[in-house]
């Protein structure tokens, strides 16, 4: 598995999209820190960029890379290698490449301009989102033979998680505003990795106070060790489940 991973990484290291992705993130983050005098404000803006852009680009890049490598993946499947190892190696390599691009593009400026607890939380959650959406992208690409369909499903997934899910939560909160539904909303928000990442960063920037009672509930839950463990487990599950589905689907599919 590590042999395939190593050479996939060499291929990805020279990939124009991966280099462009790191450069884009670097320009955006340096631009935000230079334009905003207050690093905390810049960090809030950067959080919005990370929460929207990182999942989208990780998802689309993974899907397209898998489709571009399809013929070669078939050739690998004819070698004395287990199929599960092939997909795991490719997923691992793409995750590492996207993480390096993220850490270069976002990590370096954050560590230079805002090396605070909030900055570290943004880096950790952004890295987790990279891993989550790479795994989801791998699953989508393995499950769908048609490239256009795969990319379409990826985009719909992103829209659902970034926009629709939040809109749904807002509607629930509005519709049931006369009842104490915060204890229900908290786990629902944590169920979406993007929302979970947003909450974790917000709590570190001390923006939770602006959310009133909901913010207090978030603070109470995720501010505790148990809450952090739940968040960590949720993110690990978000990586593990799609990866497992991708590996199982590839192991049993006709190529």
């Amino acid at each position: 598995m590590l042999k395939v991973c190593k050479y996939t990484l060499i291929d990805l290291a020279r990939n124009r999209f991966a280099i462009g992705y790191a450069t884009l993130l670097l320009l955006v983050s340096i631009g935000l820190f230079m334009l905003e005098g207050d690093p905390t404000k810049a960090l809030i803006s950067l959080t919005q960029v990370v929460l929207a852009l990182v999942p989208l680009l990780a998802l689309v890049f993974t899907i397209i890379y898998f489709y571009n490598q399809y013929e070669f993946t078939v050739l690998l499947a004819v070698q004395p290698l287990g199929r599960r190892n092939i997909v795991l190696a490719q997923l691992l390599a793409i995750t590492i490449a996207m993480l390096i691009a993220f850490l270069v593009g976002i990590g370096m400026p954050v560590l230079v301009f805002a090396p605070s607890a909030a900055g570290w939380t943004l880096l950790l959650t952004g890295a987790a989102l990279t891993a989550v959406f790479t795994a989801i992208g791998g699953w989508i690409a393995v499950k769908n033979r048609d490239r256009a369909r795969g990319v379409g499903i990826g985009l719909v997934t992103w829209v659902l998680m970034v926009l629709v899910y939040d809109a749904l939560l807002l509607w629930i909160m509005f519709a049931f505003s006369d009842r104490p539904i915060e204890p229900v909303i908290v786990p629902l928000a944590a169920f979406n990795p993007i929302d979970l990442a947003r909450i974790l960063v917000m709590l570190k920037i001390d923006l939770a106070a602006l959310l009133g009672y909901t913010g207090a509930v978030y603070q109470q839950f995720f501010g505790s060790v148990g809450g952090m463990l739940v968040a960590l487990c949720a993110l690990i599950l978000w990586v593990a489940l799609p990866s497992w589905r991708a590996v199982s689907a590839f192991a049993s599919k006709d190529l």
Binding site: K3, V4, K6, Y7, T8, I10, D11, L12, A13, R14, N15, N68, Q69, Y70, E71, F72, V74, L75, L76, V78, Q79, P80, L81
Partner: peptide
Amino acid sequence: RKAIGYMPQLAEFPRELTVDQLLRMMNDIR
């Protein structure tokens, strides 16, 4: 599959690898 050599109709490999790296990759796998 150690006993099998396969030449597909459509030859596609990772575009950013050199031919030498591709040969070494297959050596490692085999």
